[in-house]
């Protein structure tokens, strides 16, 4: 059984929902980014998505566009992302998902990535612009050693949902809104309805909801109906506001713990402990 599955099982037994944290790997530089992942893993993130920066992120809003540009500028690439996975494994067994656009994977070599990612200690991959129609060319080269996380959008019709679920492993990532990352205006009631339809066709595969989750209150609302909550742009926004801040990693970690607490208690705890 994979580490992603084990994590969801464990959380389920404890009656908890998963906090899935996304950051662009290598933003603003390798060592700061590594320290940020350490704080995230220590303080509440149950699964870590490491974003591979891409020059043309067409599904991302300005926050992740800028973080990608900073990471590329600092020399981040797929090889270094895998080095970071290895470095995280020195201190944490939190499941790690490589989150990428397809072109950096093509350039690295799909088969090589599969072998190297497993060797480094990664657990899954999510490729934003590789829908089921095109994904065989990647997954045919893979033997199940990495979970392949697939996306479902609010525009995905039910019959297509079922087909996507059939080819997914690890968990399903439900996009909460028709929009790019970092868009505001989470509509949790509508998303809950989509999640209900989706759960009907994905067996015991966990459903995690992302896009538009930016506050502990948002996370708590989503945690009521989803198995996991994905937070990305909100972490990146916090980091961006503290690029000169020596304690930025701790602040990101603190935000992770606030998110996780809210998910467990159903809302933000009263001020005082944050």
């Amino acid at each position: 059984m994979g580490r992603i599955r084990e994590t969801f099982d464990k959380l389920r037994q404890r009656g908890e929902k998963a906090l899935v944290g996304f950051i662009t790997a290598g933003d603003p530089d390798f060592s700061t980014s590594l320290e940020i992942t350490r704080q995230m893993c220590l303080r509440g993130v149950d699964l870590l998505e490491l974003g591979v920066p891409f020059s043309d992120p067409t599904a991302d809003g300005p926050v992740i566009q800028r973080s990608s540009a900073r990471a590329i500028e600092a020399g981040m690439n797929m090889k270094r992302v895998l080095e970071m996975v290895g470095a995280i494994r020195e201190f944490s067994s939190t499941p790690i998902i490589i989150f990428s656009y397809y072109n950096p994977i093509l350039a690295y070599g799909a088969e090589k990535l599969y072998k190297d990612a497993i060797a480094a200690g990664a657990d899954g991959a999510l490729v934003v612009d590789l829908p089921p129609e095109e994904s065989d060319e990647l997954t045919d080269l893979w033997e199940g050693g990495l979970d392949f996380i697939r996306l479902v959008a609010p525009t995905t019709p039910p019959d297509r949902m079922a087909r996507i679920a059939a080819g997914a492993s690890g968990f399903i990532y439900l996009v909460s809104m028709t929009g790019i990352t970092g868009s505001g205006g989470l509509k949790s009631e509508e998303t809950a309805l989509v999640a209900r339809d989706l759960k009907k066709c994905c067996g015991d595969l966990p459903v995690c909801v992302g896009f538009g989750v930016s506050t502990p209150e948002d996370a708590a609302r989503v945690a009521r109906f989803a198995d996991g909550v994905v937070v990305g742009s909100a972490f990146e926004r916090l980091m961006e506001s503290g690029l000169q801040d020596k304690n930025i990693a701790e602040k990101v970690g603190e935000f992770a713990s606030r998110l996780k607490n809210a998910m467990q208690t159903g809302g933000e705890r009263p001020a005082g402990n944050v």
């Binding site: 397809y102 590789l130 959008a153 525009t155």
Partner: peptide
């Protein structure tokens, strides 16, 4: 039928756009 010219072409877009 899937939009391929030999190895080229296809539909490499985010799921939100696929139904469109």
């Amino acid at each position: 039928a899937a939009g391929h010219f030999g190895p080229y072409g296809g539909r490499y877009v985010a799921e939100t756009l696929m139904p469109a």
